[in-house]
Design a protein around this nucleic acid. Structure first.
Lengths: 235, 235
DNA sequence: CTTGTGTTTTGAACGAGTTCAAAACAGGAG
DNA sequence: CTCCTGTTTTGAACTCGTTCAAAACACAAG
């Protein structure tokens, strides 16, 4: 676990020594940035603002973060670390896969609540797979795999049995489904994101039911088809 | 048809009179921009470069296009107009929905071939629904609806009969499917985008088969479920 | 031909993200 | 204590997208 975190941390900025005072400064900058982003929005906050609010020179922000977007990524990584306990709790609380999934999904929404709009900045970068910050790119692999791992754990010992051939793909698929929901949520203009709530309600059941059905004997051909699609995507 | 085009055109820049020389200049700027984008990439090309290559002052570019991204949108709109004939041809050539869909999909890929990477710039803007350039936003409605209309035409008189309740949603769904493929294609790093090719092969069949199956009597409950999801998304 | 009005074009100026060379600051070796 | 080496911090400078006030232009009306 610690290894993963350290690795996710190193991802943000390549190599550094002094963890003593430097880390203090780094956190001060990140905190200032997040506060300003929340108060007046990402686009409306300048890097100079951030530096001033953190009590350092403009250049200092770039000593710790390679770009403005990387501040958002740092936020994302931070929430990711903090999610571990809640995730574990959600999985421990029930064997019902539906409930577990709802748990993971709700946990993320709660974490992002305050910074909903902020994540569009990450998504923007994410669209371009050449971009270092893409959620599908190489740089974010640790966080990504860690999250997929949570879905593997959610499936493990749940009330859903998966066919051998499909099983290895499912955690990643569920993670992608979760990413899709987050995207929908971020851009959901309805009051209190009611639409997202309805979408989650309608699809979690559907997804789980589909997974359960996938074991039924007459589903073989359809499953083969689906596997073929996955194959096409991955290799 | 002309009305739609005029509307799509007006979308790009609000109101203008002289179509004589001004249009000439506008085209010169757009052509220069696209050439440079293709030769050295979107990010690597500055607006000053574009203006210089078009033989005008920097400000002129902004007289015709509200932003750098809007140049990409103009390209998108242009290809959209040019697609009409190819689309009509693809639909006329067969009653087989699979073939028709492949036709539309291939046509788009061919059009974008030369500017594959360029479209990421549009996608980036598209992630943010507040952005004027989002493919789901208000400003791009005309182009969007026009494209959805093509899918309605593809379904019309094809070998696929749709149940009443599902039918009105299908054109939009197919369009979204197509958008998804384009996104995948743009970001597909495999040589000659072989992976996308395989994905299309694997999914077009699947989609059409699903549509055909949706009429079968015992599919009622599943269809109801799917409609519920659509409802959640749209309203 | 002159004047007026709307369109097109210009290029300087602005704002904000980012870079960079130099200064300040550890803290260990001698 | 002094020197050296690596880390941290600074702030001016650079780039590039974008804005804007003014100039140039087109052309219709009188």
């Amino acid at each position: 676990m610690t290894g993963l975190y350290a690795s996710a941390y190193r991802m943000t900025i390549t190599e550094r020594k002094q963890t003593a005072k430097a880390d203090e400064t780094r956190n001060r900058i990140l905190d200032a940035a997040l506060r300003l982003f929340r108060e007046r929005g990402f686009a409306e906050t300048t890097m100079r603002d951030v530096a001033t609010a953190a009590g350092v020179a403009t250049g200092a922000a770039y000593y710790y973060f390679r770009s403005k977007e990387e501040l958002v990524l740092a936020f994302y990584v931070r929430t990711d670390q903090e999610a571990a306990e809640v995730f574990a709790g959600a999985i421990a609380s029930s064997k019902d896969l539906k409930k577990r999934m709802r748990g993971l999904i709700e946990a993320k929404f709660t974490q992002f609540e305050e910074h909903r709009a902020l994540l569009t900045a990450l998504l923007k970068a994410g669209v371009d797979p050449r971009d270092r910050l893409s959620p599908f790119g190489a740089e974010t692999r640790d966080v990504r795999e860690e999250n997929i791992e949570w879905y593997a754990r959610a499936l493990d010992g749940s009330d859903v049995k998966l066919p051998r051939d499909l099983a290895p793909h499912v955690p990643r698929l569920l993670w992608m489904y979760h990413m899709g929901l987050i995207y929908f949520w971020i851009t959901d203009p309805s009051p209190r994101q009611e639409r997202t709530r309805r979408l989650v309600d309608a699809t979690v059941d559907l997804v789980v039911q589909l997974l359960k059905a996938s074991s039924l004997p007459f589903m073989g051909p359809l499953r083969k088809r689906a596997l073929k699609v996955l194959e096409a995507i991955e290799s």
